Simulated scan of single mutants.
Amino acid sequence: MKQKLYLWIEDYLFFPNAFQQIIAYLLLPLTFIYMLIILTKRTFAKERDFGIPVISIGNIIVGGSGKTPVAIKLASSYEDVCVILRGYGRASKGLYVISNKGQILEDISVSGDEAMLLAKSLSKATIIVSEDRSKAILKAKELGCKIIFLDDGFSKYNIKKFNILLRPKDEPTNFYCLPSGGYREPKGLYAYADLELKEGRDFNRIITIRKNAKDNKEVSLDKKVLVLTAISKPKRLLEFLPKDTKLLAYPDHHTFIKEEIEEIKEKYKEYQILTTGKDLVKLENFNIKNLYLMHLDIKIEESVDFSLMREYIKSYE
């Protein structure tokens, strides 16, 4: 029941049916208030230059657009790099250095799923979680980092940064802001991006099925396949899989517990259970024998012009 409600909300936010559109219209007064608050904050914010290049990778819709894998792809090209994020879903609060130049210092309860995925994917980077991105930037400088990537940093108006905005391959038919739709900021703010990357045009996801994160060998799929995940917009995973694939989706950043995993293991023991890298860092300790990784890589098209970003980084040397 919870899974159905979660998927219903996702449809309402992005691709609503007629009934859901009526609900969106009824909530428009709240949406206008929300937009006024957002635009006021943006108008009166004063940018602070921290004396270090800060690259923000963000989006203006709710949930995932590929921010974390794009951050991994770009950050892996630089030395002395730090990735800073809030750390949604973590049990901790405050600032934590999750990894320092590749050495992982905290467990997943402290880091959250996205930060742990970044820490395991970037073997030489520093990963910091903090609700206060300004404090995190100062900490990164203290640790000797030379360039910073902000995961989901577009709305941090008080930080001077180079803004990369990711645009989904399938534009939502519902173009309203919260709570009438899935936009966190008005759609017109794409114009504020220093660089806009659209999935399907500027970058694509490359999915391979593997037994685990360390094994690069690709495996084939059986007839019975289940996707077990707790990411935003989980239906997007199905386009890479057979049509009869089952989807078991939990809310974004959901923390799995032993009882529900034991139930899943029994109910789907004859299935190949696929999960994402972000989910695997939470599931790998549950000893699910039929668990496989949907390994995600990002291919950025050669036509994408990063010259402005390189000039921005060079300006701090």
Results as ranks from 00 to 15, higher is better:
Thr173Ser: 15
Phe44Val: 02
Leu165Arg: 12
Gln272Cys: 07
Lys217Cys: 06
Gln3Tyr: 07
Ala75Phe: 07
Glu259Gly: 01
Leu28Gly: 07
Val97Pro: 08
Ile98Phe: 10
Leu165Thr: 10
Thr31Leu: 09
Ile164Phe: 01
Ile148Thr: 11
Ile264Phe: 05
Thr126Ile: 09
His254Arg: 02
Ile22Gln: 06
Tyr12Asp: 10
Asp252Glu: 07
Asn17Glu: 12
Glu266His: 13
Tyr25Gln: 12
Val81Cys: 03
Arg184Pro: 02
Asp305Glu: 07
Glu317Phe: 09
Leu238His: 00
Ser77Tyr: 14
Lys198Ala: 15
His254Tyr: 15
Glu218Asn: 14
Asp222Leu: 14
Asp113Ile: 02
Asp107Ala: 02
Gln103Glu: 12
Thr245Arg: 03
Phe15Tyr: 08
Lys67Asp: 06
Ala140Gln: 04
Ala213His: 08
Tyr34Gln: 06
Cys82Gly: 01
Leu150Val: 10
Tyr96Met: 08
Asn285Ser: 12
Lys93Gln: 14
Cys145Val: 05
Ala193Thr: 13
Lys214His: 13
Asp170His: 11
Leu280Gln: 03
Asp222Met: 11
Pro172Val: 11
Asp49Tyr: 05
Thr245Trp: 04
Ile55Leu: 00
Arg86Pro: 02
Met294Lys: 02
Ile257Ala: 09
Ala193Gln: 11
Phe15Met: 00
Ser123Gln: 10
Lys265Ala: 08
Gly58Lys: 08
Gly87Pro: 09
Ile261Ala: 04
Leu85Ala: 08
Pro16Ile: 15
Ile300Gln: 06
Glu266Gln: 10
Leu274Gln: 06
Asn163Glu: 14
Asn212Trp: 10
Glu311Phe: 03
Leu178Ser: 05
Ile137Trp: 01
Thr43Gln: 12
Glu317Asn: 11
Val129Glu: 01
Lys282Glu: 11
Cys177Ser: 09
Arg205Glu: 04
Lys265Val: 12
Ile37Lys: 07
Val83Ala: 01
Asp305Lys: 01
Phe50Met: 06
Asp49Trp: 02
Ile257Lys: 03
Asn204Glu: 15
Glu142Met: 12
Glu79Gln: 07
Arg133Gln: 08
Asp252Asn: 06
Ala140Leu: 00
Glu263Lys: 10
Tyr292Arg: 13
Arg48Ala: 14
Ile288Lys: 08
Ser111Ala: 15
Ile61Asp: 03
Asn212Gly: 03
Gln3His: 14
Tyr312Lys: 01
Gln103Arg: 10
Glu185Tyr: 02
Tyr12Gly: 07
Val129Asp: 09
Ser315Ala: 12
Arg48Phe: 08
Asn163Trp: 05
Ser77Lys: 15
Asn174Ile: 05
Leu117Phe: 08
Lys169Tyr: 10
Thr275Gln: 01
Pro242Ala: 11
Ile60Lys: 10
Asp11Ser: 07
Ser56Ala: 05
Ile128Tyr: 05
Ile298Lys: 03
Gly112Arg: 00
Asn204Tyr: 13
Leu241Asn: 03
Ile9Phe: 13
Asn287Glu: 13
